[in-house]
């Protein structure tokens, strides 16, 4: 049963591995290519395609970092534009941070009844955007001169750094010797609470990723413009609730409505629905569906 549940949507496993090779050191192919073309000597790692710092820099008035780290701004820009057109496919198919916690969640066969599940996606959305608002407010407070009391939280609570540290530690165990409070807290929230003990294993993505939250907004705008999105069509439903239980983002509510700002177009609902009631569409803005 458990092994069978692992076999769903096999292409995502392949894309996770590709995402891992593209972004995580020692491979970090994307940054390696960029560094090669730009003549930069540094060894690339996941931290150099930071998902958070450019967002903080923009709102804290430090956009001049675009000259020092143009690749980070380009990366975020690419993720957001992709989210607009194809949905948050980076989150669903490539992001190594989300893939790692989701994979851990799948591997550990803990029944969903022992895991955190927020039944109403509107509450999940409120938490997600409460975090994003707080994240942006910190940057603005720093801009306004409150830097003696507040600090940017991008690096202090950084799941990318922790993931890279774990991988570095597999290669060279000495790298696992140093942990600070922020990285310990991240490990607990990202892999244990958000991974093992959250339905879908993406608690970190849902509640603590500003890029994921922004991608959700772009996806919502994109879906209104008629770009790629997952919808549920009218049809005979066997009420098995598989779509709800396999959605890694807890984006489907009990009425089978999809919360657009949470959906990452991962196609888990499409692959699991026995009645084929979910599908991805393009353009057809007025398709008969339950979508928000």
């Amino acid at each position: 049963m458990w092994l069978k549940s692992l076999m769903r949507n096999k292409y995502r496993y392949i894309s996770w591995i590709i995402g891992f090779i593209l972004f995580v050191g020692p491979f970090a192919i994307i940054m390696r290519i960029y560094y090669y073309l730009a003549g930069i000597l540094r060894e690339p790692d996941l931290h150099m395609a930071c998902f958070r710092m450019p967002i903080d820099w923009i709102f804290s008035g430090r956009i001049y970092y675009i000259f020092s780290y143009p690749e980070m701004f380009l990366f975020i820009f690419a993720v957001l534009i992709t989210s607009l057109i194809l949905g948050p496919v980076f989150c669903g198919w490539l992001c190594p941070v989300g893939a790692f916690s989701e994979a851990i969640s799948r591997i550990i066969p803990l029944p969903n009844k022992y895991r955190i599940q927020i039944k109403d996606p509107k509450i999940t959305r409120a938490i997600r955007y409460g975090f994003l608002t707080g994240f942006i407010m910190i940057s603005i407070l720093i801009l306004l001169g409150f830097s003696e009391r507040f600090t940017a939280i991008c690096c202090w609570y950084c799941a990318s750094s922790v993931l890279q540290q774990i991988i570095n530690g597999i290669i060279n165990p000495i790298e696992l010797e140093y942990w600070f409070s922020g990285s310990i807290i991240v490990l607990i929230f990202w892999l244990i609470i958000g991974g093992i003990f959250t339905v879908g294993g993406r608690g970190w993505c849902l509640f603590f990723c500003p890029l994921g939250a922004l991608s959700g907004i772009f996806h919502k705008i994109g879906s209104k413009l008629g770009f790629y999105r997952t919808i549920r069509i009218e049809g005979k439903c066997s009420n098995c609730d598989k779509c709800i239980s396999v959605c890694p983002m807890q984006a489907i509510d009990s009425n089978f409505s999809i919360e657009r700002t949470l959906c990452i177009n991962c196609k888990e609902c499409i692959s699991r629905c026995p009645n084929k009631l979910y599908k991805m569409i393009w353009r057809n803005k007025n398709a008969s569906s339950k979508i928000n």
């Binding site: 409120a126 938490i127 409460g130 608002t133 994240f135 910190i138 939280i153």
Partner: peptide
């Protein structure tokens, strides 16, 4: 309440 509490926790 969920929104405000999360925002305050973040701050």
């Amino acid at each position: 309440i969920s929104f405000v509490i999360t925002m305050l926790i973040t701050l």
